[in-house]
Amino acid sequence: MTERRKISFESGGARCVGYLHLPENLAEKVPCVVLCHGFSGTMDRLYPHAERFAAAGLAALVFDYRNFGESGGQPRQFVDVSGQQDDLRGAIGFARSAQEIDADRILLWGNSLGGGHTSSPWRPTIRASPPWSRKSPSTDSRRCATGPPPRRASCRP
């Protein structure tokens, strides 16, 4: 059974809330996948993916951008792209500071607008695996997280 722990971090004057999904029987630090949802989504839509990553032995962090879901911020339901990118940087910072996570092995995974955030210009600060931002029924998330880098931004075999 994987563990799901509620977390929070500060970003842009708002408290962002998320959940860290951890694999069972942690004996050493593990890589972490930071999942980014789309335009005006909330983290609950990403729980099934996070649970699959955790079941495969990886940590997975989901979070709500400021102004959405469980996170603070005003006005509610307001999409601020640069603010969401700041929130993603905050989530990465949280992941790197968590004692269970190998700070040098952070992977970004996003869908919709979240996929765009994973390829922002500041992305080179992610040193481990290149981020994959495509999510589709033909994408194998486990292979993306653990396998060799894909060709042309797709994880298809």
Rank of each mutant, 00 (worst) to 15 (best):
L88F: 04
E10N: 09
S154D: 09
P130F: 15
S82H: 09
G147M: 13
N67Y: 12
C36A: 12
S154T: 14
W122R: 06
D102F: 01
V33N: 02
G12K: 01
A14E: 05
L58S: 12
T146Q: 06
V62K: 05
V33Y: 02
S8C: 09
S8K: 11
G114K: 12
W132H: 10
R52D: 08
R105T: 00
F9T: 03
G12N: 03
L107C: 07
T146S: 05
R143I: 09
R96V: 00
L58M: 12
E70G: 07
M1E: 09
A14R: 15
A27F: 10
R96E: 00
F94H: 00
T2I: 14
G83S: 09
L20A: 04
G116I: 07
D86P: 05
S138F: 08
S119T: 11
S138N: 11
D86H: 11
Y19P: 05
R52M: 12
E10S: 12
A153E: 11
A14W: 09
H117M: 11
L26V: 14
S120W: 15
D87Y: 04
H49G: 07
R127W: 03
G73W: 07
E10D: 07
I126K: 01
L113M: 15
L22T: 03
R152V: 10
A128I: 08
Y47I: 14
Q74D: 10
G57W: 07
F53K: 06
I92G: 00
G110I: 03
P148C: 06
Q74A: 14
P137K: 13
A153H: 12
L22M: 08
H117C: 07
A55V: 11
G110N: 02
Q99A: 13
G18V: 00
A54D: 12
R76C: 06
Q77H: 10
Y47T: 15
A95N: 01
R76D: 06
T2A: 09
D104W: 04
P48I: 15
P48L: 15
T42K: 14
F39G: 05
G147R: 13
P137W: 05
A98G: 00
L26D: 07
I106P: 01
H117T: 07
